[in-house]
């Protein structure tokens, strides 16, 4: 064993006055680590938050292609289908006519569709798509991917059916079918009556 071999009586007294416990500086260092841990925990739980498949639909604002801005809250009292799409996505093309048909058939009864254009390479491509399929419901480009992140959308197409009270009731991944969604819409509209 090779360590300090000097006999006890040669040892010096304590070099500095012994402190009871830790100094303020020490406590602040430890506090900083604790704060960092809390921040990491917040970040982790935010990351782990999944898609809003039920409960209140996250609020957002969307700037439409036509220029004005709308908010989800504006449509409280109506059934809303929130549809995420992109022009380069084949299933989005598949469902485009179905979506427009749903809009035409139920808009009078208190239903609307909000289309969120995501990951589009240029706004012109989105506008071309809208023109090609004769889309008339609200559509806007998702600025800085805010809405996409809010709804944890992984790839188009994804759709959320939101009821009149602003709660998410259905989630569809992949292209939607007219029949499936119309049944759900009618169910929600019936609830309110």
């Amino acid at each position: 064993m090779k360590r300090d071999n000097t006999p006890d009586f040669l040892q010096p007294g304590p070099a500095q006055p012994k402190r009871k416990g830790l100094s303020l500086g020490s406590w602040s260092i430890l506090a900083a680590v604790a704060v960092a841990a809390v921040l990491l925990a917040l970040q982790l739980s935010e990351r782990n938050r999944g898609r809003p498949l039920s409960g209140p639909a996250p609020e957002f604002e969307l700037k439409l292609f036509e220029g004005r801005e709308i908010a989800l809250a504006d449509y409280r009292g109506q059934v809303v289908l929130l549809n995420f799409w992109a022009s380069w996505c084949p299933p989005c093309r598949d469902e485009a006519l179905d979506l427009q048909a749903l809009y035409n058939d139920y808009r009078g009864a208190g239903f609307t569709i909000i289309g969120v254009n995501m990951l589009e390479s240029s706004p012109q491509k989105a506008l071309d798509f809208i023109e090609e399929f004769g889309v008339t419901y609200y559509n806007g480009e998702d600025q800085e991917q805010r809405v996409t992140n809010l709804y944890r959308v992984e790839g188009p197409p994804e759709s959320f059916l939101i009821d009149q009270a602003g709660h998410v009731r259905q989630f569809y991944i992949g292209s939607i079918r007219y029949d499936t969604v119309s049944r759900a819409i009618e169910g929600l509209l019936a609830e309110q009556r």
Binding site: P14, Q16, K18, R19, L22, S26, I29, L30, V33
Partner: peptide, 16 residues
């Protein structure tokens, strides 16, 4: 583990 380690260290350091 980081807090325990730093705590031990700061304690010993504080005692010189």
């Amino acid at each position: 583990i980081t807090l325990v380690a730093l705590g031990l260290l700061l304690w010993r350091w504080g005692r010189g």
